[in-house]
Design a binder for these strands. Structure first.
Length: 505
DNA sequence: AAAAAAT
């Protein structure tokens, strides 16, 4: 069981973070450090290499962002010159934007010298070169970027990597995976050998850690509470259902009618399917957006922005949006197609249940997906009921999905859909007050008010030597949002109790 | 075999 701590986590001020940063964080409602942040700060400030692991939505961005900003502005031997001193590499463009914005907020009051503000810039593809090049020419202290554009601008001579003091790989296991590894190696070649490297992710497979150690200096592996287990949250209720591919959209439509449903993310395995599902749900009247790699960059950003601000309440995406994206009030994650591996599953459902909130994850498993699903289920110890057992040829199979709703019932009934016209005029925008519809960032996974979750006491810190090594529409009834949440009491809870023991990697 | 990431 989770140890009960009577003391709240320490504040950033208590942890010795400089006042400019403390003030900026406070303006965003952040005062207390999450476990991963508290554990990371002393080592990160000392310049140590480290691998930071904490569950999704538990504040990894500021775990590297805060010490990074503190350190490069406090090093009197190396004043900031406008040549990049810190580089954060991320796997997707949208995550790049998000991390960039977090760092901009946190650095609001920081000066590079007596006359110049500290500058952060985002370098990513799908957008014109000129503004990014101009920003670099004006002088930049911190760069956040995706690999392709970073290398491109480095090769063109616009991005100077020789002055880097700090390198961060966010979603590090993804960055060191086959698809990205060559790019990362190219970047590593261009940065000074004597630098601090910090790697963060909720998931860190052993082979990746072994690989990481080849370019790190005696890294400390910091694992915040919880990640030793399944790395999924016990605040997120998980379900798996057997589904015919052809029925999946109908099942999703019913899930989307769950009472108390807030924002919902639907993940697919392919770009085509993502678009198709988005289109079909749109036809059914849901306010839906799509994010995948076949869309133009502005369409991707527009969809995500609409989802953030509440104009859209269903977002269909490929795994491009599986990692890092931090949006408040995502109550449901639906795996329309099962993910590639357990890491992808962990990150997908990690879009809900963030910062101690509750969430519901539903995975729809087609016949040909059963073997892979059972592998994921086993690898994570989810112990969901075998979806095969829910198999039936009955057309009424999905009448009861058995997913608890806020009202205490189950969803799955067609809910008047039979006599309902496929499409109704949408309610005017003004119908709900804008503020009520606005979905906020959770600010790096940190609750905007109250104490963050996490008990540092339960954290397992191990040094590199000691333990070796080890982140609606109207066609359907409008869901009631923001009701008081009732804890679902049936079906399978994932994960081990977030705590000390049972820590088999 | 898929997605992502430079054009």
């Amino acid at each position: 069981m989770t140890p009960v701590t009577t003391h709240p986590n320490p504040t950033f001020a208590q942890l010795g973070v400089r006042d400019e940063i403390v003030r900026a964080l406070a303006e965003n409602g952040i005062e207390h450090a999450f476990a991963i942040q508290e554990l990371t700060l002393p080592l990160a400030l000392a310049g140590d290499d480290l691998i930071g692991q904490a569950r999704t939505g538990m504040g990894k961005t500021f775990a590297f962002g805060v010490p990074l900003l503190h350190r490069i502005t406090t090093d009197t031997e190396r004043p900031l010159t406008g040549i990049p001193r810190a580089l954060v590499v991320v796997p997707t463009r949208e995550l790049c934007i998000q991390v960039y914005e977090d760092l901009v907020h946190a650095s609001k009051y920081l000066m590079a010298d007596d006359t110049r503000k500290l500058t952060v810039t985002a370098i990513y593809g799908g957008r014109p070169y000129e503004p990014q090049i101009e920003a670099l020419q004006k002088g930049v202290d911190v760069v956040v970027g995706t690999p392709g554009r970073l290398l491109d601008l480095a090769q063109q001579g616009h991005l100077q990597l020789g002055g880097l003091n700090v390198l961060v790989l966010d979603e590090a296991d993804e960055m060191l995976d086959l698809g990205f590894l060559p790019d990362i190696e190219r970047i590593l070649k261009q940065i000074p050998a004597k630098r601090q490297a910090m790697l963060f992710s909720a998931t860190m497979p052993d082979p990746i850690i072994t690989l990481a150690r080849t370019f790190m200096t005696q890294p400390t592996h910091i694992r915040a509470e919880g990640v030793q287990g399944s790395a999924t949250h016990d605040t997120t209720e998980q379900f798996a259902y057997r589904a015919h591919a052809l029925d999946k959209v109908e099942m999703v439509a019913r899930i989307l009618q769950a009472e108390g449903r807030g924002a919902t993310m639907i993940f697919t395995r392919t770009k085509r399917t993502a678009q198709k599902v988005a289109d079909e749900l749109g036809e059914r009247g849901f306010r839906v957006g799509a994010v995948h790699g076949d869309l133009g960059q502005s369409a991707r950003e527009k969809a995500l922005k609409g989802f953030r601000n509440g104009d859209v309440d269903v977002l269909v995406a490929t795994d491009v949006a599986a990692r890092g994206i931090d949006i408040d009030d995502i109550t449901h994650v639906i795996n329309f197609q099962i993910p590639e591996d357990e890491q992808a599953y962990v990150h997908r459902i990690g879009r809900t249940g963030r910062a101690g909130k509750t969430g519901i994850a539903v995975t729809l498993v087609d016949w040909d997906e059963l073997p892979r699903w059972s592998m994921i289920d086993k690898a994570l110890g989810l112990d969901t009921p075998d979806p095969a057992e829910t198999y039936s040829n009955s057309p009424h199979l999905y009448d009861e999905l058995n997913i608890p709703t806020e009202a205490g019932g189950s969803i799955g009934k067609p809910a008047r859909s039979a006599d309902k016209p496929k499409r109704e005029p949408r309610e005017p925008r003004a119908e709900r007050p804008a503020r009520d519809r606005t979905r906020r960032r959770t600010r790096g996974g940190q609750s905007v008010s109250g104490h963050p979750e996490g008990t540092p006491d339960a954290a397992d810190t191990s040094s590199s030597e000691a333990s070796d090594s080890d982140s609606a529409g109207d066609g359907a009834p409008r869901p009631a949002r923001r009701r008081r949440r009732r804890r679902p009491n049936k079906a399978s809870t994932a994960g081990t109790a977030a705590g000390t023991s049972a820590g088999t990697n």
